[in-house]
Design a protein around this nucleic acid. Structure first.
Lengths: 253, 253
DNA sequence: CGCGAGCTTGATGCCGATCAATGCATGTGG
DNA sequence: CCACATGCATTGATCGGCATCAAGCTCGCG
């Protein structure tokens, strides 16, 4: 009556322990769906030599840990959790057997979330450099591409934190700081810019109605944080915005 | 005073038009940061032969379109937008010059979002099969890995839609249906299962407080949609859950 | 058996949605 | 050049859903 036993193959545990391979893994269809040749599968097996047990409540990895491996859940159950600098928590996903953990780490080679076991669990460790080598993907261009994809995943974690934990003004502050930083990276002013999108589109991104976005702009203007004229924005007080978001306390712009 | 001119290099437009290359692109540091060899850069140039203009309001691609290329924004501004079956909209991001569009399409070879230009824009087209070939990544294993990453991006879009547009009971319904479907894919019952996480963790994932999660469970039970006993869940009325989420109207379980 | 973590349920308050009116910029046709 | 339409933004009034605060309750576990 327990639909998720912590170890699915405990019945044949001896054989499983001695020579479990990707080719014979009963999670294979989930973890490595069709189209992968037997040859590649063999190679994958040479990677996934090591297993690791993680006890309930323990972390497989933590935000800030260096990244070197991906992990496939073999048995058990995990959550991934993003914690912002001011202590807000957002669970970004739950992972069950056959699902992958650690993609967030590829971008910067440092993990950005905690992966915590919700019950005693076991994972297959997939060393990432080996994976790239075997995939015939050991090219700087390829690596770059992987990082871009991982960065997108990390970005979306940040949006989830915003949508899950922030109030209207905090969301708008985070949005403006993000925009400002990306414009600066492109050689434009970080403090003065033109919004290319409507209030309604900002609202749709931030999970708010356009009236709420408009009111937040007005309030920022009243408080001397922004100058707002239609789509023209000037940021007067970066620190006020940062305090709202709960990031980068103390750093002057 | 306009910090984001729609075309940055209109001053040297003749040369830019005739032989713009990745190697000379003024967005290169954003689009292809260091570590990529001159040789790879040349190869990249052979890919990115075609440009495409997209007028304000037009779509670069739409959800449902077949995927074959990624796009780098060269000038202008885009939004990506996910629309659920019952018409909810969630903007999943805004893209400015040097940023990439289309990663959502790798997973299933069909785009899952609309990419709409917020102003007259230009993109560089990067045919994906060519990219994989040049990256020395034309291996089934590698392709699979790319799809896994893309699938994660698409999943997170779904979570953003949930967090941005749904009310408490709708969120919980979506969560339960998702869990149910993943358990079924692993050979477990879709209608009867044990939650491995606490109400608080569910709440943190769904952007709700634990009391709200608990109340939603109670209400589902009152309405005969679920049987709830601590962490043991039995789904009695799938269609009721689907109706809340606004997905899959009419399909029987 | 008794403790404590996790859950349920109730009462109240607040934030943001909703509904509604007005303002303002842009564009179009007379 | 003005009259008018249209899309977008602002602001106010009211409402509702969820957070918050506060008890109790249940179950698993030492």
């Amino acid at each position: 009556m327990n639909p998720i036993p912590s170890s699915r193959d405990s019945g044949s545990s001896l054989q499983a322990r001695l020579k479990a391979t990707c080719a014979t893994c009963n999670l294979r269809e989930l973890c490595v769906p069709g189209g992968v040749s037997p040859h590649d599968l063999d190679q994958l097996d040479t990677l996934v030599a090591t297993r690791r047990r993680v006890r309930r409540g323990e972390a497989l990895f933590r935000a800030g840990d260096g990244f070197d491996s991906l992990y496939a859940v073999r048995s058990g159950f995990f959550k991934t959790r993003l914690t912002s600098e001011d202590g807000r928590d957002q669970v970004t996903g739950f992972q069950m057997p056959g699902e992958l953990l650690g993609l967030d780490g590829i971008a910067t080679e440092v993990h950005s979330v905690d992966a915590v076991a919700l019950q005693d669990s076991e994972v297959c460790t997939i060393p990432f450099t080996d994976l790239e080598r075997i995939s015939a993907a050991f090219s700087p261009l390829q690596r770059h591409f992987h990082k871009v994809m991982s960065r997108e995943i990390v970005r979306e974690h940040g949006v989830m934190l915003l949508l899950g934990t922030m109030r209207a003004e905090e969301r708008l502050a985070a949005f403006l700081l993000n925009l400002s930083q990306r414009l600066r990276a492109r050689g434009y002013s970080a403090s003065e810019f033109v919004l290319r999108m409507t209030r309604e589109e900002i609202g749709s991104f931030l999970g708010l109605k356009l009236e709420t976005v408009s009111r937040a702009f007005s309030r920022f203007q009243e408080d001397g944080v922004l100058e707002v004229s239609n789509k023209n924005i000037r940021i007067l007080d970066f620190q006020a915005l940062r305090n709202l978001v709960g990031v980068d306390r103390g750093g002057g712009q």
